[in-house]
Write a protein that binds this DNA or RNA. Structure first.
Lengths: 232, 232
DNA sequence: AAAATGTTAATTGTTGACAAAATATGGTGC
DNA sequence: GCACCATATTTTGTCAACAATTAACATTTT
């Protein structure tokens, strides 16, 4: 069990790793607002750890896109503009498209024997959930749908990058906007993706996935235009 | 000049930021080998800073893909497998393809008046450099070519992610392999990309860019197959 | 009243000490 | 020679103190 030396999992994460997780949660869930300053002393007091530990946690978020580190001034929750969100969507479309193309190839080659059944079941559940107007449940299934395809692509790095992009998008928020908009259209797009993947049609899957994300951005900006409220 | 408050650039980067840069350089240039442990005390002595500063620098590399942080054991230069390199190439192809498509659209829309001239000039220089068998110069021009297109895409996040992917690829090395292999083919592929961009042909540019990266991976694995030497 | 200057307080950045965990070393038994 | 155990050493993780920089506030000048 120790024979792989370096890869043995430690029993417990370090305090700094736990603090990072908590800061990330606070940012993604909105407890820390975009542009807000991360005060080391306040955080260390709140979490019952030393300020140095908080510093380490904050530094570990340096490349995450969630915070901006400014020398001698501290760390601030990143303020994302709509232009940046557009860029994130563009990247998200490219990566999700690539992943769906890869998933389709792997399904076609018999490398992913369970993926098809999984996404079809998820799709069925999304339809049922939509019929019951249960948007929280739909949201969870939607995330699962994307996760399944990203896992099916067999490229863990792609999933990691995609998940980080989604996290970054949480920085741009509008109060009171519901998460789901035009679910019927969204489900229809999922169906097109599933159909292409089922037939091992990589190019069709890539295009359908890209269209789906692009369309999602269109739905997103439609919501924003309909709600001109200033940021929190 | 002070009126933008938070965005005013500090006069000097912190020591931890400088230490991070040095560690990154050591990794990318091979002074720190894949799998090698980053000893905090050694590094702090070597660089003339305290161990805490080295820790902060190392933590800031947590998400970079260049190192693995293991609780209670320390930080290790990430060991990249060929499978991981394949995944990185796949992502690289998706992002570069997306960037070239965006660049083509922007050229077609007149949003990038200088890009076309810049990449054509670069291409001309690559041809001349190849004719003189100056591979170091060719390498630099090749990097510039990719940079110009990524900048022309108008998506800074894409460029950042692409550059990080390239950095990660440096972790997988084979001693004695020359960087450039089949330059004539590579230049031909660059020409196809430039042609598509010049005509504002987004889909053509995307496909040409993807093919170029995919082909680059093929050239890469060909080199590896021809040199079965174990990692240094 | 607004701008400039000076002082004080708060915060960030760095360092070194201590505690905990991992690793290395030496001795013993089979 | 190998496996196991105890001990010593090294390294990592955390904490607190000090130094440097920035922000906030008060006073003076225009």
């Amino acid at each position: 069990m120790m024979n792989e030396g370096k890869t043995f999992g430690p029993r417990r994460a370090t305090l700094a790793v736990e603090v990072r997780g908590e800061i990330e949660r606070m940012i993604v869930e909105g407890d820390l607002a975009a542009g807000e300053k991360l005060n080391e002393l306040s955080l260390s007091t709140m979490m019952g750890v030393s300020r140095g530990t908080v510093r380490e946690a904050i530094r570990s978020l340096a490349d995450s896109g969630l915070i901006d580190l400014i020398a001698n001034r501290g760390a601030f929750v990143h303020e994302t503009t709509l232009e940046e969100v557009r860029n994130l969507y563009e990247l998200r479309g490219a990566i999700f498209g690539m992943a769906c193309a890869a998933a389709a190839r792997r399904v076609g080659a018999g490398q992913e024997p369970r993926l098809l059944a999984q996404i079809e079941r998820n799709l069925e559940q999304m339809r049922a959930t939509h019929a019951k107007a249960d948007s929280a449940r739909y949201y969870a299934l939607n995330i699962e749908f994307h996760d399944l395809l990203l896992q099916g692509a067999g490229n863990p790095k792609a999933k990691m990058m995609y998940d980080n992009l989604v996290k970054e998008m949480h920085l741009f928020r509008r109060r009171g906007l519901s998460i789901a908009n035009n679910i019927a259209r969204s489900i229809k797009e999922h169906e097109v993706i599933v159909h292409a993947v089922a037939h091992g049609n990589a190019e069709g899957a890539r295009q359908a996935a890209l269209d789906h994300i692009t369309s999602g951005f269109g739905r997103y900006t439609t919501m924003i235009d309909a709600d001109p409220a200033a940021t929190g």
